[in-house]
Design a protein around this nucleic acid. Structure first.
Lengths: 173, 173
DNA sequence: AAAGATTGAGTTATCAATCTTC
DNA sequence: GAAGATTGATAACTCAATCTTT
């Protein structure tokens, strides 16, 4: 990962957009690009802290989902819905977690087609320790004040809803 | 990519964070996770529009950088700095772009170690057409009003600066 | 020795096709 | 036939090691 630049490359791109007669799309371009770069930064920081646990953010998210589930287990398909990733990725992630002893595959009690992923005792321990580290070293020092964090969340929430990420039909499902 | 949920999974996670006594990290967690999800959504939309051109967002960004450069060419290392990706990724992307006839490798005039990537005439045409499509179909309809887009950009700009993505030392490099 | 770029190994994500169960 | 999950093939990214030029 290279060193810092002496200017903001995204602000520079926005200037170029305006100079080329695309002013009406410049704000959208800058917003999209900013989100891309911010994700890159966050992912690097998070994965860096998770590396000692042998986890990636994708696998960590899966573990948290199981940890917070009522029975400590969920059908693979439901996990894919929540995390918005393809079934294949879930299969892969679960394979890795099983190898690591953090998750176990359990047949669904009534539906023979579906498989449940169940978090193990070790999985619970690791997830809690990893969460403590992430909270301490990343989530508490994101680089914005509390009020700004909330505004950021609200803006992106609106954006995600507009994109059809979730509907506002009340709880359930 | 699965269908929409009937609730916001990130708001749900934030509730869980607070319920588990991690309230001081909940806002940061929600912000980070929101950025991750927003990036996922944007990348899918952008890559979808770029697919007919045989491009990915990574390669498109590289082409735009060359298109806007003074001579239409840049050293590979400088491209890596601007795009914040590893040298290997640049080599890979340039290889693909050369195969596609959109970029050409040129030896640096004075420094025998460095290679320049130079955009071809075809590369310019493709980049401009792809940009027109992205502007029309993605950047103009991000899902937020102009004022909100600007706030989002400003928040993320602050965040990127805090993260050391760039310094405020005036222009130049 | 250091900068710049490339190669090869390992990891992860994605897509189409397959298999089992409903 | 459709849902749920897995397999095999492909593409992209990352890391360590290598090679050339300075």
């Amino acid at each position: 990962v290279p060193g810092p630049l002496s200017f903001d490359p995204i602000a520079e791109a926005r200037r170029q957009w305006e100079a080329h007669g695309w002013a009406d799309a410049a704000a959208g371009m800058a917003a999209v690009t900013s989100v891309m770069r911010a994700q890159q930064i966050f992912l690097a920081r998070v994965d860096d802290e998770l590396e000692p646990f042998g986890l990636t953010f994708a696998r960590y998210e899966l573990l948290v989902l199981l940890l917070f589930s009522r029975r400590g287990s969920l059908p693979l398909g439901k996990i894919g819905d929540r995390l918005q990733v393809h079934p294949t990725s879930i299969t892969n992630a679960v394979n890795r977690l099983v190898e690591q002893g953090l998750v176990r595959r359990v047949p669904h009690p009534t539906d023979g087609r579906t498989t449940l992923a169940e978090i193990t005792a070790e999985g619970r321990r690791v997830t809690q320790r990893a969460t403590a580290v992430l909270n301490e070293r990343v989530f508490r020092h994101v680089g914005l004040a509390e009020a700004q964090l909330h505004r950021l969340f609200t803006l992106l929430e609106e954006l995600r809803r507009t994109a059809g990420d979730f509907d506002e039909r009340g709880p359930g499902r």
